[in-house]
Amino acid sequence: MTNGIKRFAKLSAAAIAAAMMMTAVPASADLVIYSGQHKSATIAMLEAFTEETGIKVNTREGSSNELAHQIVEEGKRSPADIIYTEESTPLIMLANKGLLEPISQAALDNIPKEYRAEDGSWVGLLARSRVLAYNKNMITEKELPTSVLDLVKPEWKNKFAFVKTSGAFQVQLSAMIKLEGRDAAKAWLEGLKKNGKVYRHNKAALDAVERGDIAFAMINNYYWDKMAREVGVDNLNSRLYFMGTHDLGDLVTVSGAAILKTSKNKEEAQAFMEFATGEKGQAILTEMSAQYPMNPKVGTKGLKPFSELTPPNGTLDLGEYSDGKAAIELLQEVGLL
């Protein structure tokens, strides 16, 4: 009687086992990195890192906020050794919860003080500027607003786009809360919701500007810089606009990385930090992503020089709003999320 069952059980077990074996899950890696940064640049840097150190890396891709909250949910048993995010907000959120391990001095020394945590819990790797990308056939630089705060005025209705799920946009919102207060920030967000068109991705918003579907969009500089590198500026309908007045619209956001306290591979993780902040790692990241390197020894090609950027004062450290929580709550309150 048991013959049939045995055969059935054996067959099913064999099929599942075969499925498992066929699954080419990457062989055990030495480091697991949760990465919210753009994949191509990250992968290029990681390949160079593995080549130099022999340390094998496995990445889990996702959005920065998603991955940081995932680590919180995973708690002590998180498989992540390192988290690498597009903005510093998710890192600060994790640092506030005491989940981060101090980074080695050798890595920290590569990066100026203002772009890393005081206690060494995270370190900035890349920076980028918020900008307006505009279609030069639809609007001139002179006609563009001199402050993003003006976008809530009626004359800008249906003229611009923004990306509500973008981490950098949320940092901009956090900065607004810090600079102008929560009520003013809420009114501003409501105005944006009323006047602006929402896109789901920065690249989609930029493409819409390039096509002439909308006059301008609030994005990060590198989306356009990367496109300009690939097709040539002369072939583009869009241009970048920096307000140049220390306005919220020129906010600089810092992308960084941190080591998890629960990591079981801290030595390898520290080696990664040293490589990523070092000249080689920084050069690859800059070259591949058109963002600004945080290591001052590495130069930028074709970007508006970092020293000429005019971010709003007092926004490098967003204090109690730096974990981004207030911004997300506001987005929910206004009904954008």
Partner: peptide
């Protein structure tokens, strides 16, 4: 919208 929530906060009450 659930996916957006997941995108900004992984697994939220919202």
């Amino acid at each position: 919208a659930i996916f957006d929530q997941y995108y900004v906060a992984f697994n939220s009450a919202a």
